[in-house]
Design a binder for these strands. Structure first.
Length: 881
RNA sequence: GGGAGCAUAGCUCAGUUGGUUCAGAGCGUCUGCCUUACAAGCAGAGGGUCGGGGGUUCGACUCCCUCUGCUCCCACCA
């Protein structure tokens, strides 16, 4: 078969992926082998592939393919997340573009649109993952809103409700006025925001609701909320304001009378030391309100507009109202001054709207007991975080966690299985039928139509925290006492989870909680936390910056293998990834290197009658040893999740070790055949190398592996066993490296002196050079060693290889003065090196204090240095110095 | 405001209990090569007071203190 000089990924990738699918190589069923299980962090069902997914899933695929080749029963479960708020807002936007408003639809109508949208656009990302080569078990694809997975979510809710962990109550929550829903604390991002600090005069009331000429000043960033003020608060220890005790003040513009109260919460040094208390619109004020029994007046509606309770500016958006009230206050003489101010403001993670602290009725899950166990799981090492610096962050979060607000005012998601009786009492049950039964225990005459189900749905994470359980068994979540089914019993706990640190708390911690609760075991053993993919300048990749390349375009341009390699090359665990397209180019180049090495090897003709040249025998022996050495290193890297290090070790083995050294040595002369022993060894090495590379670059390795022998249908490299490191001769590797260093030195001399590689040179070799590898030097450096390695008196260029003195006689070509200067510089360096070693050795404390091994090493340095000085001096003597 | 982490070559990073001739790798740069697998390549070369300062030690990139610069997480100072 004729192979082009360049590898063309487009011709091979789809072909082999289809072949893998046809043969169901990715599919796993429980059997007697050890399982290796991974669940995908489910991407949003409407999401499209971005570089973060590429990183994450490439790493996952490497681990899964490696485990599969290690003989484990590897199972990687793919799927998507319904992402309630994100998906719902997309559907709302799409409907809006069609002139349909969500308010005009019934819940059922809206959900029909949403499901249509999901069927049409959902799961694109999964097909994109196939382009990347992900070896997921597609037969197991799950969606967090599949009927059975939803059932598991409902069961879980009922379980925790019955356990007393779920409660409903009016609490201050984070309200998203754009998404029109409450969000959890974790979904609020605080960013420093510049705003204004308004200093307002509140006049003291004369007791009849009329202003006196006395006033106090409060400082606020939110003047539009003054109408909801319930009190003015001072610190009881603040002497400046003792005169205010028991007084009442008037809210500007609306002249409403409110009391002055005292609470030590108020910082005397901050602002003016007077705080306006607005219980409905600030978390702290709410707490103060409870302590002092203040009325709660909510003047902001769902959309963030002032409502009629505000009396003024009714219907205005809160930010418009802020601008307008500033003028009104100024006109009324209540505005003392306005300062620029920067303070942290909460934004919704999903809609980027400014979060409005708001009182509302929500469902909560008690976290203390769950968090305590989940913390223990990590502290005890049952779950390992990689890198482990995240343990601190994890602990801090788990020790300070607050109850989880799990209700969302959305339609897309699992509707809360709580049913209200006509009198407002609530029952919680899996189905309306069961709810009715429960309801009748309370109120026997109640009918099915009298029950009203809670309108809210559950937080997305309330379904994805079950993921490692529910993808296998949808009954077990919510039923800790149930027997796990065959799949769950076999695959749980999963082995590794690869995900980003940004969802360590959202998702990872909560999965641990659910695992402990329902399985009495953690959901995974290792959590590999990747960095965030950034651009070359260190900026986060984002649509608005336009600095995020489309992975599919990259795959088109460089091939999936190239993209995978480019991503992995720069991905040390836990560090952010600074991605640059040039790395993908490097990946593509590596593909090409492999391709061309293959072309070379398969282009050889075996000459049955040829004997194996000595250099080839040496090369084969060396590479066999080197291969073992690298296999050992790579295994160690894998064990520590140092994936990019494992890759780099293999990369260098192939490019430098195999191509630059091994192949150059065994390569037969043009037109000549190759001996059988070398050929077979070479093919076998190539086979091992392809297997080692396969987890990283699945496509090209399959292509070449299939090509290198006639394979049966149904055979694949991905199910071959990964080579295992055996015993090897470390000393021989050392000897071979000396040969390489010698070759490099001679090539350097050639370059310096402008000598063609075609001209043979003589080489004088000093004592101590390993004779067994000389044939390699002869072949690659094109030299003829002097008889018996005798020291020559001819003038030439001399050099040291470790402790062996070598020289290339070059009569007429050598500039003696330069040569002598070089030798003298060497001598000077060696002598000062020797002096420093001897200083150490003459230090009594060193000799007695340092380990024997270290002292012995110093003595060897001394001896080596002495012998080097010796031979440099001899060389100088040859020049008459 | 609290906590964590980072700083090593032009860039991205290794450096695994302080001691192998330890100051490294990849990429980039420079020089010479279209050498019969590969110019997406080959051969060779240069490049760092390990952020600054102090300390512990026979010995510090490595441990301690401090300063500077950056990053992230958490947080209700209006």
């Amino acid at each position: 078969m004729e192979l082009s000089a360049k590898y063309n990924p487009a011709e091979t990738e789809d072909k082999w992926y289809a072949y893998w699918l046809e043969n169901k190589f990715f599919h796993s069923e429980p059997d007697s082998r050890e399982p290796y299980t991974v669940v995908i962090p489910p991407p949003n069902v409407t999401g499209i592939l971005h570089m973060g997914h590429v990183l994450n899933n490439t790493l996952n695929d490497v681990l899964v393919r490696k485990a599969r080749m290690d003989g484990k029963n590897a199972c990687w479960v793919p799927g998507t997340d319904h992402a309630s708020i994100a998906t719902e807002s997309k559907v709302v936007a799409k409907l809006k573009a069609e002139g349909i408003s969500k308010e005009d639809l019934t819940r059922e109508e809206f959900l029909r649109h949403a499901w249509e949208w999901k069927e049409k656009h959902g799961g694109i990302i999964l097909s994109q993952l196939r382009k990347l080569g992900a070896s997921c078990d597609w037969d197991r694809t799950k969606f967090t809103m599949d009927p059975d997975l939803s059932e598991a979510v409902i069961n879980t809710f009922v379980y925790f409700y019955n356990k007393g962990y779920i409660y409903r109550g009016v609490r201050m929550v984070n309200w998203d006025p754009v998404g029109l829903t409450a969000v959890s604390d974790e979904e609020v991002i605080h960013r420093d925001t510049t705003s204004k600090f308004y200093h307002l005069r509140y006049y003291i009331s004369d007791g009849q609701g009329n202003p006196t000429d006395k006033y106090l000043i409060i400082a606020t960033t939110r003047p539009e909320t003054i109408m909801a003020d319930a009190a003015i608060c001072i610190n009881p220890a603040d002497e400046r304001y003792h005169w205010l005790k028991g007084k009442k003040v008037l809210i500007p513009l609306i002249n409403k009378e409110i009391p002055v109260i005292e609470d030590s919460y108020v910082e005397m040094e901050f602002g003016t030391g007077c705080l306006k208390v607005t219980p409905a619109h600030d978390v702290n004020d709410y707490e103060i309100g409870i302590r002092h029994n203040l009325p709660v007046l909510d003047i902001i509606d769902d959309h963030g507009r002032l409502n009629e309770k505000a009396q003024i500016l009714v219907g205005e958006d809160r930010f418009d109202a802020r601008r307008k009230i500033e003028d009104m206050l100024r006109e009324a003489g209540n505005l003392e001054k306005v300062e620029d101010y920067t303070s942290p403001v909460g934004y919704s993670e999903r809609t980027n709207a400014v979060i409005e602290p708001r009182l509302s009725m929500q469902w909560f899950l008690k976290m203390d007991a769950l968090a305590k166990d989940a913390l223990e799981s990590v502290e005890s090492g049952k779950v390992k975080l990689i890198p482990d610096k995240y343990r601190n962050t994890y602990r801090h979060w788990m020790e300070n966690v607050r109850d989880w607000c799990i209700s969302r005012q959305l339609w897309w998601g699992q509707q809360i299985p709580a049913y209200y009786l006509p009198d407002g009492q609530v029952v919680v049950a899996q189905t309306p039928e069961k709810a009715l039964e429960l309801a009748r225990e309370i109120m026997p005459e109640v009918g099915a139509d009298d029950l009203r189900q809670d309108e809210d749905v559950l937080d997305t994470w309330f379904s994805s925290w079950l993921w490692p359980i529910s993808v296998f068994d949808t009954n077990k979540a919510g039923h800790p006492d149930a027997e796990p089914n065959r799949d769950l019993a076999y695959y749980y706990p999963t082995n590794d989870l690869v995900t980003g640190p940004d969802i360590l708390f959202f998702w990872v911690a909560r999965m641990i909680m659910a695992g402990n609760e329902f399985m009495n075991d953690v959901p995974f053993r290792n959590v590999y936390l990747t960095g965030i993919v950034r651009d070359k300048l260190g900026r986060k990749m984002s649509k608005t910056l336009g600095n995020s390349p489309d992975p599919l375009v990259l795959i088109d341009k460089y091939g999936a293998d190239g993209v995978r390699l480019g991503m992995l090359l720069c991905s040390s665990a836990g560090n952010d990834i600074l991605f640059d397209e040039s790395q993908v180019e490097q990946g593509r180049n590596f593909c090409n290197k492999i391709w061309n090495a293959y072309r070379l090897v398969t282009g050889w003709n075996v000459d049955e009658s040829a004997n194996q040249p000595e250099a080839s025998a040496v090369a084969v022996k060396w590479f066999a040893a080197k291969l073992n050495e690298v296999l050992e290193t790579v295994e160690d890297h894998y064990g520590k999740f140092r994936i990019s290090d494992a890759l780099m070790a293999i990369y260098k083995l192939f490019w430098d070790g195999f191509c630059s050294w091994y192949l150059e040595i065994v390569k037969p002369a043009y037109g000549a055949g190759i001996d059988k022993a070398t050929y077979e060894a070479t093919i076998s090495f190539f086979d091992s190398l392809l297997k080692m590379i396969h987890p990283f670059m699945p496509f090209i390795t399959e292509e070449l592996w299939q090509n290198m022998a006639s394979r049966k249908d149904g055979e694949t490299i991905m199910l071959q066993r990964m080579p295992v490191a055996g015993e090897y001769d470390k000393n021989f590797i050392q000897d071979f490296e000396m040969a390489c260093e010698t070759v490099v030195a001679i090539r350097g001399i050639r370059q310096q002196k402008g000598l063609s590689p075609k001209d043979s040179l003589k080489l004088n070799v000093g004592a101590g050079f390993p004779e067994n590898v000389m044939s390699v030097v002869v072949k690659l450096a094109n030299v003829v060693p002097a008889e018996n390695g005798a020291e020559s008196q001819e003038s030439g260029v001399s050099f040291m290889v470790r402790t062996v003195k070598m020289s290339v006689p070059l009569t007429g070509l050598v500039n003696e003065e330069e040569e002598i200067a070089k030798l003298e510089a060497d001598l000077e360096y060696q002598e000062s090196f020797l002096a420093s070693v001897r200083k150490k050795l003459s230090n009594e404390k060193f000799v007695s204090g340092a380990p024997e091994k270290v002292v012995a090493m110093e003595r060897k340095k001394e001896a080596d240095s002495l012998s080097k000085i010796e031979s440099i001096k001899a060389s100088l003597a040859a020049y008459g110095k």
